[in-house]
Design a protein around this nucleic acid. Sequence first.
DNA 1: CTGTTAGCGCCTTCAC
DNA 2: GTGAAGGCGCTAACAG
Lengths: 313, 313
Amino acid sequence: MTVSRVMRGRGTVSERTKTHVLSVVEDMGYVQNRLAGSLSESRSNQIGVIIPSIVNAIFNQVMAGIAEELEKAGYNPVIGVSDYDMKREERLVESMMAWRPAGFILTDFVHTERTRNIMVNTGIPVVEMMETGGRPIDMCVGFNHAASARMMVKHLYKKGYRRFGYLGWYDNDYAAATRYRMIKDYLAGKGVPLVTPDVFAGSPDIPAGKIALAQLLDTNPEIDIVIFSNDAAATGGMMHCLEEGIAVPKQLALAGFSGLRYGQALPLPLTTISFRRFEIGRRAARAVLNTLAGQDVPRVTDLGFDLIAGATS
Amino acid sequence: MTVSRVMRGRGTVSERTKTHVLSVVEDMGYVQNRLAGSLSESRSNQIGVIIPSIVNAIFNQVMAGIAEELEKAGYNPVIGVSDYDMKREERLVESMMAWRPAGFILTDFVHTERTRNIMVNTGIPVVEMMETGGRPIDMCVGFNHAASARMMVKHLYKKGYRRFGYLGWYDNDYAAATRYRMIKDYLAGKGVPLVTPDVFAGSPDIPAGKIALAQLLDTNPEIDIVIFSNDAAATGGMMHCLEEGIAVPKQLALAGFSGLRYGQALPLPLTTISFRRFEIGRRAARAVLNTLAGQDVPRVTDLGFDLIAGATS
DNA sequence: CTGTTAGCGCCTTCAC
DNA sequence: GTGAAGGCGCTAACAG
């Protein structure tokens, strides 16, 4: 019991015993057993975090924000990767729940019924991050994807583009699907056609974008602007143009989404939507922590986005 | 006890009680408490994994390999990010140890004395991944960095390049530092100069590579080949050349390291060293799992590397 | 096939 | 300022 008090810096222990305890601890390489501690206190310092992809630069940066903020408060993230699969997410949530995390951070609003039930029943703080255009289980932090897509397509329409192509990877990426729908509807309202190949599987990375653009132009040479569902794919598109000598934006304009740094390091800075990836992570973490600390946290935290006009359109 | 048996599928329970238990479990949304389980069994199904960076694409892919393999065996990775800081790694190791993981996966061979002690004393399986050119605490999986750097510089030297530049980010990245040293020594042996600015801080990403190359050429216009410490930075270098109209490889040749897919999607495929990132993760995980299963695992697993000749040199 | 006992290592509570 | 008792939820081992 005295050791426990020393290790946690709680309660009163004489200076003499304290130093003695610490020296013995050092000598024998004793490390507290948090399994027993958490079991006894019936609470842990772990926060479950579920992201859809680990290879995606966006979620890396969001994760970095989460990790930083949790660490400051003495909490640890336990990370699960759902691969954009609701069923997989459910399994992850279940297995994480067995470790009695103090809170949860999920991505987007789309979950299985069971996942939702678990979250509601356990009553621990839950943040759904990235999207704000929906009803959160508990809290959400992010920005409005539909509004961002609308701003982009409106911007491009006003610049005079009328032959749109869209290259999207949003098989189970609901936020991306939302953005696509917004763009499609906006253009439909203007009577402007939008050429979209079937949704792509796999990761929307640079090589994928390069190949996809080549194929799209092969069958639809009339297109004068292509919107990609993210910056990585758009960068791949740019590579295709550089390789084939296609003049950007004169002959073909390009637009991405997410505002990654490397999109701005292209020979022409990419037209894109930028949002506060790192800050979303930090705020999501803080929302959980503040709730645990008994503070009132707003259900919705909208961090907004910016249109980067770029030079590729 | 009967419930425990049903939940774990161990021991013998009648079909009748089994279905009954399961239905009640479903009804009340019961989730096992692994804290208590692991405490009781005094072993857990968690494997501590420490990587130096989460934003780096290489470690993403290594992590993906680890996660895949662990999951198949019913184990979970608990991830810590050291930021290339030994002291931070030590703190992560300590706090992870408190959760009594069944095994550990670290990166590279450079750790604090205390980290090493903890690993040795607890006696759980430990894999150091990425590098094989050294003495592992327990086991290691990866490839020989020095040999890979030697192959690259030899290849470039034989192609006739004689005015070398090197742009490296290896502040605390010991594997990268090893590669740099190899290159420097090789060229020194040939009496060929190597221009290297001070080591850069920050991430070796695409924008960083672009800026660094611009600066290097500014002060050293005579250089005809630049080796970057990774593909991301080399890609940034390529961006600079595209933007400035520098003819690659005629006027300036470029080489990277790691063999990322997007380096091969550039207008000219990048000259680089490729290694089995995903496989390193899988094998590291399997080394831990096999050791836990009581099998004999070789101390060193060398997965090799390949020189990709590319078109940028 | 099912139940009982004891204990994993810690922390809360209460004595001293 | 320190220690003893009891319990967190589970499982190994044994009893029936």
